[in-house]
Design a protein around this nucleic acid. Structure first.
Lengths: 187, 187
DNA sequence: AATCTCCGATACTGATCGGTAAATGTAGAA
DNA sequence: TTCTACATTTACCGATCAGTATCGGAGATT
């Protein structure tokens, strides 16, 4: 299998795991869906867990790239970008395939904090937090770390609730909250 | 099986599903753990899904009762109670068995919005939202619905992140954010 | 005491789980 | 053309999945 075939497999597996869940999707079904036989899959990934880790690493890269690019396309100022986070979330929630956050789901199914999958999920959120912290610092917030943490709290809450309730109402509340928090942080 | 035996089974199943996840825990393992044979379980629940629904309904009742009682024990005023929500969360996060929210996990594993399990999860969050809205109204907030939604956002975000990062830091950020949002709502 | 009734434990169903051994196909080199 | 080497498919492994048929044994009825 060529490197590009492998990437294609991981990309398709990503979609399938996101749609069905990690335990719910078996390797036979995955092979059928991707068109890659199980033997060929296991040539490149020693276990199902390793394949899942590869999909999560791809998702981390894709999601953060997408979010940051969209945020920077929507606003120029650091303050504007902190608020644009919620406009980008609104775009995401509006996708018909939206099904919450893959990392939240991963950490739900692999709950042990020492589990590698749990660790990748935690790391993904840390990297987003670091981005928010950079924006908060540039915006001149009194306590950039705290503001970044609060934006992340709103973002994660919105992701969970948009999956359960009305996404538009959720994101409106979250954005309004972010505005209040920015003001409170002197931004 | 007596009614109390049935309750005991649901209680034990609740613990087990919360610990292991819904797909990950099989009925054989559940029977062994609860000490109730599969036949006896299926006498009272036609399918695994029905048992899961029963555990979620019990969890909903137990969790909301517990949270409301603790909130009302910690503070007298509506404003104090809205903030006390985060002190109660801190208590929860400190439990060694803490593993995020059972309803978030349920909606992760059963993602289809038309699925009964997904519906029970959505309903649980709606009931908590209604409680927050009542407190926000009593506290004299300008827009009680919005404030309640924002408190819920912070709560859900905190639940998710406390499972991934440091719970103490998360809950501190969430509580500080809630204070700012209360002030912005004129409370 | 003898019989009846019904609950639950044992043991099983076919399907599917993650993972692999063996067989087949296919390409290039000699 | 024939051999080699590798990639891929088919068929399989024991274990476990959700769910059930069977049968023994305890309690109630006569």
């Amino acid at each position: 299998m060529s490197a590009s075939k492998r990437d294609e497999l991981v990309q398709k597996a990503l979609k399938a795991f996101y749609r069905d869940g990690f335990h719910a999707l078996g390797m036979d079904a995955l092979a059928k869906e991707t068109g890659v036989s199980k033997t060929a899959i296991y040539k490149h990934f020693r276990t199902k867990e390793e394949l899942i880790l590869a999909t999560l690493r791809l998702r981390d890269e894709q999601f953060r790239n997408w979010m940051i690019r969209r945020v920077e396309a929507l606003a120029d100022s650091p303050r504007g970008r902190l608020l644009a986070v919620f406009d980008v979330l609104a775009e995401w929630f509006a996708e018909p395939e939206y099904r919450s956050c893959m990392f939240i789901k991963a950490s739900s199914e692999y709950q042990d904090r020492t589990h590698p999958i749990h660790g990748v999920a935690a790391e993904h959120k840390k990297l987003l937090l670091a981005y928010f912290e950079k924006l908060a610092g540039e915006a001149g917030a009194k306590a950039p770390k705290r503001l970044a943490g609060q934006i992340l709290l709103l973002k994660e809450g919105a992701i969970v609730l948009a999956h359960l309730h009305d996404p538009d109402a959720i994101v409106a509340d979250a954005r309004a909250a972010a505005e209040d928090l920015l003001k409170a942080a002197g931004v």
